[in-house]
Design a protein around this nucleic acid. Sequence first.
DNA 1: ATAGAAAGCGGACCATAGTCCGTTTAGTAT
DNA 2: ATACTAAACGGACTATGGTCCGCTTTCTAT
Lengths: 201, 201
Amino acid sequence: MSSIPIRPDVPLGAPHERSDAARNRERLLSAARDLVAELGAEALTMDALACKAKVGKGTVFRRFGSRAGLMMTLLSDSESEFQHGFMFGPPPLGPGAAPKDRLVAFGEGRIYFVLENGELLKAAGAATRNRFDVPATKLSHRHMEVLLREAGIADPWVMAMSLTYALDPERIVDDVRVRGISPTRLADSWRELVTRLLRAA
Amino acid sequence: MSSIPIRPDVPLGAPHERSDAARNRERLLSAARDLVAELGAEALTMDALACKAKVGKGTVFRRFGSRAGLMMTLLSDSESEFQHGFMFGPPPLGPGAAPKDRLVAFGEGRIYFVLENGELLKAAGAATRNRFDVPATKLSHRHMEVLLREAGIADPWVMAMSLTYALDPERIVDDVRVRGISPTRLADSWRELVTRLLRAA
DNA sequence: ATAGAAAGCGGACCATAGTCCGTTTAGTAT
DNA sequence: ATACTAAACGGACTATGGTCCGCTTTCTAT
């Protein structure tokens, strides 16, 4: 067969990924997952990754751009799942419930999501100047913005930003792991925040 | 004269600062201020500072502990002033006004404070694992906590944490400088947040 | 004045993210 | 099959925050 191979996720007309590139990407991803599983995301160094994947350091950076980029790639599956939940899933997280209830559910979901992927998220956010250029972050922000607008907030864009920072991964992880606040308590406080913010005048 | 020299700010019984240490501290502080003025806080490297102050690198770290520590030292004057404002100054920022109004004023004040000292604050917060171990941050948090408790919030400690992150220096600076949001708009949104959060049921 | 102790000093050294560029290799056109 | 080109590669190199430890200075007790 001489047909063009199917490459999902590659924008039409993208210049074709070379076979060695594909192979190295697999090796890197696999090695990275191993290292994270065995030492934790925080302890993963780019040198160690390159070495374990039997690849030059330049290749690692060519592929992921930065340490943060690597962490984002590692996160993308879980992240997509969470996104799917609030965009298409059943209410109250998904469409169909009142904005207030969706926001409460969103925050709760986010808290538990962060606690499951905390190391990766911290590593992804910490390194570079892209804390907010991450597509996933943009999407979450936009989601909250829409809900806040529906609920009659005057400046939903800025308010969504405030709430985004209130749910900052570092904040959540440190509250729970360093300052000993239970996830439930965080979720309850989030509920109080959203409830008071959005109740009718 | 053989009397003990007066050393304000040094806790009683502190082990006495040696004269060479004092001299180097002055040199370092002065050099650091020069470098910040001339290149900006972001571009200040510890090597350059040591070099400019004619001091070994070890001395720099002995004195300030880390880059973040240095930035905090550089900030401490402005920070004290702001603290004095919300603790002892005239209402609505200081005592005497309703908690809601004090919180609104606090956030506004904080926004403008951050915009004046943004580079330093970002540099102070970014480097180490002490984002919340900073005394100044603790004090701000405690201040908000007290106001929120007075206003009937169920879990003022956690809520104060949410608001602390909503006022994160990086968030404020990037909103204004990268995303083009005006300080006024930020302040208005903060007012909306606090007003809705604290209005009577 | 002197000696001893403790604090301070300096700069070589380390770890790690990220860059650079000469070399290799996969795909392609002939 | 061959030659050509653009992409990919690898690892030496740079920048920078932070550590270590043997040497020096200051202070104090005698």
